[in-house]
């Protein structure tokens, strides 16, 4: 028996919004530790890694490890039927071929349930080693989303250049070129507005705008985003989901031919 309850459906809606542009379907691996998902996009350029800890749920029970392959378009249709404030419960029997989403209104007067067929998906897990990154940048998630959106007007690629002075995002194309520099904040009233840079070595890497923009769909989950970079390895973009877990995106760099 698997059962996981969140007091507000809005959290699950935001999690789904953060992954459904990159993935058509994905396997949710459930254990007593929580729910894990790891999947590459179709082109194998980016990877989504989602962790939702069992202690972050309002109720969590998982008697046997369970892998639930879900069509994210179908899941999205179902979650649209929930109000943001509804309690959402996901339920599945052991070895089931369906999962049930149950929504309950705050006044308990409306209860709906939606059963969705599960899929058998080929699992392609990547082994990602623990890495000490040369640069780790933390900044407001809204700021990062704004930068990715603004620069994508100028080119298909963004160059992220990080030194101890700051981080620079650049793009160029037919229109011209654009550069956005962010300095480390010296003092801020609110921690979520800070830009911080931990640098061992300066790095300069090129990434596809399209994927960075897709990652910023996670912005509603977190005030801050963390970018981890080292020369010639994938970028890690991490959003922490308060009291519940995190979503990490890995993106292979573009390299000179």
């Amino acid at each position: 028996m698997f059962e996981a309850r969140l007091n507000a459906a809005t959290t699950l809606k935001k999690v789904l919004d953060a992954i459904k542009d990159l993935l058509n379907e994905a396997t949710f691996d459930c254990s007593d530790a929580g729910i894990q998902l790891q999947a590459m996009d179709n082109s194998h350029v980016s990877l989504v890694s989602l962790t939702l800890r069992s202690d972050g749920f309002d109720k969590f029970r998982c008697d046997r490890n369970l892998s639930m392959g879900m069509n994210l378009g179908s899941m999205s249709k179902i979650l649209k039927c929930a109000n943001n404030e509804d309690t959402v419960t996901m339920k599945a029997q052991d070895n089931a071929d369906t999962v049930t989403f149950m929504f309950e209104s705050q006044n308990h007067e409306k209860v709906s349930d939606y059963e969705m067929k599960l899929m058998n998906l080929d699992q392609e897990h990547l082994g990602i080693p623990e890495t000490d990154y040369s640069c780790v940048v933390r900044m407001p998630a809204m700021e990062f989303a704004r930068i990715c959106r603004d620069l994508s007007q100028f080119g298909e690629s963004v160059i992220i250049c990080c030194t101890k002075e700051g981080v620079k995002f650049s793009a160029s194309g037919d229109v011209g070129s654009a550069n956005i520099k962010l300095a480390q904040t010296s003092s801020v009233d609110k921690e979520e507005e800070a830009v911080t840079i931990e640098m061992q070595e300066p790095v300069s890497l090129t990434f596809a705008c399209r994927y960075l923009n897709a990652f910023t769909k996670a912005t509603p989950l977190s005030n801050q985003v963390q970018l981890s970079m080292s020369a010639d390895v994938p970028l890690v973009v991490e959003y922490r989901i308060p009291d519940l877990g995190h979503i990490r995106y890995y993106l292979a760099p573009k390299i000179e031919e």
């Binding site: 194998h44 990547l126 990602i128 090129t206 390299i255």
Partner: peptide, 14 residues
Amino acid sequence: TPIQNDLTEYYSLI
């Protein structure tokens, strides 16, 4: 122009 690398160039399938 730079070319897009594949993630499997960096991480192995398990």
